[in-house]
Design a protein around this nucleic acid. Structure first.
Lengths: 239, 239
DNA sequence: CGGAATGTTGAGACTAGTCAACCATAGTGG
DNA sequence: CCACTATGGTTGACTAGTCTCAACATTCCG
């Protein structure tokens, strides 16, 4: 797909890297060739990282191949600060560059204060949310953005299969959150309603009729079944 | 600007809150009316915050008034995690909502492990960078994005007045970082060159001729002197 | 020198923004 | 109870900026 991400075929995961290891920071220092992958999407989160020399990038792909570079990391920058069990971002060396590895176990052992570990967890979780947010803002159409927003709200509000969302914020807030104009937000709400994805009993009340279709739109999975061409059967939603 | 001293009438002390809600902090709980500000851009960063009830938003404005909502915070979310001495984001209540206040001093005292405090600092700094990044992606034209990118690189590379940047990454990386197509990046480089803002001795080498003009463009300060109408005097740049 | 990868330029299409008018709702006061 | 108003939301027409596709240029490297 992208030539950039093809430099790393056949490379071992970080745990198996046979490269020169220099002790530092209670950890290990490893060098990477240009384009080489440090961790990839889906890898288990075993370590934090800190750049020693050179340039790294954090990238992410939508299911249909659109690419977003989330950050460039220069010496001194931390990365790999992801709160969940697997990495969402792929971290790669841009040029020949060096990284210090900090095993998470060791960090956890040293962080025995409850408030501070909650703070740290909060910061990394905010970062993870922001990755999603930026991915969406950088690479999505208006429909995808609003679908993403509604799907996120539904997920946060608990797991009903056809949730009803009470929107606390007004259209302007949604627009500024999604990087759209208020008119486009309004038009897209109407579009979703006409298409039978949602119901709008009041302006601030959204009943999600087809969470699956919204979620597919939100995931920017354009290779999935073509949602925008599906017809809506009124009798199905009227129930 | 600070609303912290108001609206705590009749609220339980944080120790009296149900344990399931939020872990116990030695802090204060304060309620806010709809639209009320918790902290504003430029306020000194004295506290961290954690949402107890209701909805908050973090917003930011460009100098010329474009608005970006950076996040919505729901109960349990931390906010105010900014690394510098003053807040960049304004945090406001969306509806009537409640916040726990965590004095930073107290948190610092409890975080006496060097590695962990560096990690935490790294996480909050990553968040701050991401605020800028998202602000840019959500609300800027192609010219503003590239100007922002070059200005950031120049700032990172040290403070020469007319810096020369060696770009380690290729056009595709820049495009995916800025949320643009590679063609638009290329066109905008050419535009900057034609306008005398930069020189491009090689494709990967950028000599910044007018850092001030680039920085104004980057700040999205459209009320400033109209850069895009200024003419370039060739003799000035030929030197 | 040739080929591949990277970068630039051009033409046309299309999405979302802007401006303007209109509609809905809730609150207010006579 | 009904105008009246303010705010928030919707819709339409037009425009502008960016993407896409395509061709071409440049650089790098064997």
């Amino acid at each position: 797909m992208y030539a950039l991400s093809h430099h790393n075929e056949g490379l071992p995961a970080i745990g198996a890297l046979p490269v020169t290891c220099v002790p530092c920071f209670n950890g290990t220092v490893i060098s990477f060739a240009s384009g080489e992958e440090v961790v990839g999407t889906g890898d288990p989160t075993k370590n934090y990282f800190r750049v020693i020399r050179g340039l790294f990038r954090a990238v992410n792909f939508t299911p249909d191949g659109r690419r977003q570079v989330f950050a460039f990391y220069t010496p001194g920058d931390f990365c790999g600060l992801e709160p969940d069990g697997t990495h969402q971002l792929t971290i790669e060396a841009v040029d020949c560059a060096t990284m210090a590895i900090l095993p998470r176990d060791a960090c956890r052992l040293r962080m025995n204060d409850e408030v501070n570990s909650a703070l740290f967890e909060g910061a990394t979780r905010a970062l993870a949310l922001t990755i999603d947010h930026m991915m969406m803002i950088g690479r999505s159409s208006a429909e995808e953005r609003l679908a993403w927003f509604l799907t996120m709200l539904a997920a946060r509000s608990g797991g009903s299969r056809a949730p009803v969302l009470q929107l606390a914020m007004q259209r302007q807030d949604i627009a500024d959150y999604l990087g759209l104009s208020i008119e486009t937000v309004s038009r897209t709400f109407t579009l979703f309603k006409d298409r039978g994805l949602i119901n709008l009993p009041h302006k601030r009340l959204v009943q999600i009729l087809r969470p699956d279709a919204l979620a597919r739109l939100a995931a920017a999975d354009r290779d999935a079944s073509p949602i925008h061409l599906e017809l809506w059967e009124p009798e199905a939603a009227a129930a």
